[in-house]
Amino acid sequence: MVKMKLSKTNPNTVNLIKSLTKQSSAQDAPIWKAVANELKRANRKTKQVNVYHIDKNTDADDTILVPTKVLGEGNITHNVTVAAFKFSKEAEDKITAAGGKCLAIDELMAENPKGSNVKIIK
């Protein structure tokens, strides 16, 4: 078996990608493999997600995953659980003020090992 070299150099990112891939195999949950593949992409090819985009594409009590950074542009009008690679301070404040919750991707993976009822927004 040939191992592919990851282009990422941050050890936290590399470890998260490995954890997601392992979880995908262990739980037969393709969502974690999809997130790992998104994290492997070159930084210049990733798009950041604004709070208004989350508001527009979710309903109350949804759980979503953003494989990149969440930024604070716009407003959010309902509570959602958002797991992301990173949050800006403003985005985190707006999500929690609306009654939502902010998680790291590995925290969501621990809470929901199979990734059931999780939407990916990218």
Rank of each mutant, 00 (worst) to 15 (best):
I95K: 05
K22S: 15
K56P: 11
T13F: 02
H78F: 01
Q27A: 08
G115H: 10
V82W: 03
S24M: 04
F85Y: 10
T9H: 11
C102M: 14
N117D: 15
D55S: 07
A29V: 13
V51F: 00
K56N: 14
K18I: 03
K69P: 02
S116P: 11
K122W: 09
D61E: 09
G100L: 01
K56F: 12
T81F: 09
K22G: 09
L108Q: 03
F87R: 01
E73Q: 11
S25D: 13
E73K: 05
K114C: 07
P67E: 03
K33A: 15
E111Q: 12
K5N: 10
W32L: 04
D28Y: 14
S19N: 08
D59N: 13
A98V: 00
H53F: 07
T63L: 09
E90N: 10
L103C: 05
A84N: 07
A36T: 04
M1Q: 10
E38R: 15
N10S: 10
G100N: 06
A42E: 12
V118Q: 07
G99Q: 02
K122C: 08
S7F: 13
M109Q: 08
D59G: 12
F85R: 09
M109W: 08
K5G: 07
N57E: 15
M1V: 14
T9Y: 15
E38T: 09
I105A: 00
G99M: 08
A42T: 09
H53P: 00
N43Y: 14
N50H: 08
P30C: 06
A34W: 15
D93S: 10
V49W: 01
I120K: 05
K3S: 10
K94W: 00
D61A: 00
K94C: 01
Q27W: 03
D106A: 11
A91D: 00
S116M: 11
A84M: 05
S25R: 15
V80E: 04
D59Q: 14
N43D: 12
S19I: 05
C102F: 15
A97W: 03
W32A: 05
C102E: 11
S25Y: 12
T58K: 00
D59H: 15
F85L: 11
D93I: 05
K8P: 07
L16T: 02
A26K: 12
V14R: 04
N10R: 11
V118P: 07
Q23K: 02
T21P: 03
T13P: 04
Y52L: 09
K101F: 07
I17M: 00
Q23I: 03
L16P: 01
N37M: 13
I31Q: 04
N79I: 02
H78T: 01
N43R: 14
K94L: 04
N117Q: 15
F87M: 00
A91T: 02
D55K: 02
I31R: 02
H53Y: 11
Q48K: 14
L103R: 01
A104V: 06
K47L: 13
I31N: 05
L71Y: 07
I54W: 02
V2S: 10
D93R: 06
N112F: 08
R44W: 14
T46N: 14
Q27L: 06
V66M: 06
G115M: 10
K33N: 12
N37G: 13
N112G: 08
N57S: 11
